[in-house]
Design a protein around this nucleic acid. Structure first.
Lengths: 134, 134
DNA sequence: CTATTTACCTATCGTGTCAATAGGTTTTTA
DNA sequence: TAAAAACCTATTGACACGATAGGTAAATAG
């Protein structure tokens, strides 16, 4: 299940996209509009900055701004960043899980097929696709 | 992420399907073949019996047997039983989560679309599809 | 009739993650 | 120089996950 971190991250990016994507927007404003505590959003936004999705500016007049145009983000990369992995099963999550049954597992193909479906869906969705066109 | 309960449940059903689906198979045997502790499997098998997916028989010569033919199980119903829900986000999980933003949420359509994709995939897979044909 | 085999049941536990809060320090600008 | 904002570190409570422990009840084989 997608956690709040993933869901809130998308809402933050979407909020910024809808603000025009030009000016620096204080996190306080985003928090108020989205009804999410500013302190919790800080954790999320920090990851987004580190990943280069957002640019932050301190001081008066500062805030956050999108690093790219909304059509240049895809939902999959955002979710993967925030969730760590999108794999449907631990067996497919980043390396380290070395199952002895891997070679002969009869359910692994099912998970792989599903993993691809999911990946294609989320990597095919762009942030701009979520902006309501009036 | 699909937990062990969901994954193990499928492996148990698949194991039984591959044993012919006629005789009662002791859980001990399944546990050994699958490399999963019998005690943990009991928790899983209990749910499968309650849901009517398996039939159990106590005593010598007892064990478990499939209640239906392998082609009459679909993976989705098994996963949904074991995981409680397959919803990708809490916003879509069974009732009770009453988000005040539901009506205006700009990300909800995304989750709904993904939810349908996922549902169709897993409900379209049957247990018999996982049996390797030589 | 009795020993054995098996399902069936209840409770408990350690670990980790999630969601969130608290309370700062640093940077920048008006 | 005061205010506004990002940026940083630590901590917490609640809960689920994965699993183990130690039984009781039912059925059959001999």
């Amino acid at each position: 299940m997608i956690s709040t971190k993933g869901r809130y991250a998308i809402r933050v990016l979407l909020d910024l996209a809808e603000q025009g994507g030009e000016r620096f927007i204080p996190l306080k404003d985003i928090a108020e509009r989205q009804g999410i505590s500013k302190q919790y959003l800080e954790i999320i936004v920090k990851d987004l900055v580190t990943a280069g999705f957002l640019t932050g500016a301190s001081g008066k007049g500062g805030g956050y701004v999108l690093s790219r145009r909304p059509e240049d983000y895809n939902i999959g990369e955002v979710l993967e960043l925030m969730e760590g992995t999108l794999s449907p099963v631990i067996c497919l999550a980043k390396d380290n899980f070395n199952c002895p049954r891997r070679g002969s597992c009869e359910t692994l193909p099912l998970w792989k097929e599903y993993d691809k479906l999911q990946h294609d869906f989320f990597y095919g969705k762009r942030l701009s696709d979520l902006i309501p066109k009036e």
